[in-house]
Simulated scan of single mutants.
Amino acid sequence: MPLATVDDVAARIGRPVAADETARVSAFLLDVTGLVEDYCGRDMDRRAGQSITLYPEGGSALPVPLRYQTFLTVAGVLQDGQAVTDYRFNGRALVRDSDWGESAVTLTASWGYESVPAALRAVACSEVIRWLALSPGVESERVGEVEVTFSGASSAQTLSTATRTTLRPYRRQGAGSITLRREGPALDLRGPVVL
């Protein structure tokens, strides 16, 4: 399912989408949904009763990929054809007191947003409107001093910088960064000191 509808786009452009534009707008909505999900590293649309196969590497924690973590509810867990019930989901992994071993684990689960957040709907509509405003083969246009940039072999259907900024709260969060310090005397970066 796309993050927005043709009617959402029509409401934002202030006119009905013409019959000959409907197929194009629908395709753009699917495209932008895919680009947003790929950029954020997670599924946004609700998937219900789906199977996920995870491969443990030993230990008591079985990490669930971030793509599936958005409002994840686990209905059942199978390992070697047997139901597993002695686990808990801590928001990132299935944890149990015993070791998961090395055989595949199959989850029956649901994940994703029940209804699309307003920010994601707005992003999808704004990207589609931006794409509709560009002529095929044109990457950007400027009115003052008339400037047109033509795209190369790649498509102009990419997420804008503003959209990427808006999507920051929905994006996969990595491990973060660490500060490395070297042992030894501290350097004075202000330069030489004159007395």
Rank of each mutant, 00 (worst) to 15 (best):
9 V>Q: 07
55 Y>F: 03
184 G>D: 06
3 L>N: 07
58 G>Q: 03
167 L>I: 02
154 S>N: 03
35 L>T: 05
148 V>Y: 01
189 L>A: 01
76 G>F: 01
194 V>K: 06
108 T>C: 02
170 Y>F: 15
115 S>D: 10
67 R>I: 12
14 G>Q: 06
2 P>I: 14
192 P>Y: 05
123 V>M: 10
130 R>D: 08
159 L>A: 11
79 Q>E: 09
25 V>L: 04
136 P>V: 02
46 R>F: 08
181 R>N: 14
6 V>W: 05
79 Q>P: 05
126 S>N: 14
168 R>M: 13
95 V>Q: 07
101 G>S: 03
137 G>K: 15
62 L>Y: 02
157 Q>V: 07
84 V>D: 02
1 M>E: 15
169 P>Y: 01
183 E>Q: 14
73 T>S: 14
15 R>S: 02
194 V>N: 05
183 E>K: 14
69 Q>M: 10
129 I>N: 08
149 T>N: 10
149 T>I: 15
82 Q>A: 06
169 P>T: 08
54 L>K: 00
103 S>H: 11
42 R>W: 12
127 E>Q: 12
151 S>N: 15
12 R>L: 11
28 F>C: 02
13 I>M: 12
195 L>E: 14
132 L>H: 02
81 G>P: 10
12 R>S: 12
44 M>T: 00
18 A>N: 08
16 P>Y: 00
146 V>Q: 13
76 G>M: 10
46 R>V: 03
159 L>P: 04
147 E>N: 02
51 S>M: 00
67 R>G: 09
78 L>A: 11
149 T>R: 07
49 G>Y: 10
132 L>Q: 12
114 E>M: 13
21 E>C: 03
64 V>H: 00
20 D>W: 10
48 A>G: 05
167 L>D: 06
139 E>N: 09
71 F>S: 09
111 W>L: 11
44 M>C: 05
58 G>N: 08
112 G>N: 02
109 A>L: 09
85 T>I: 01
69 Q>H: 02
86 D>Q: 08
8 D>K: 09
24 R>D: 01
20 D>H: 12
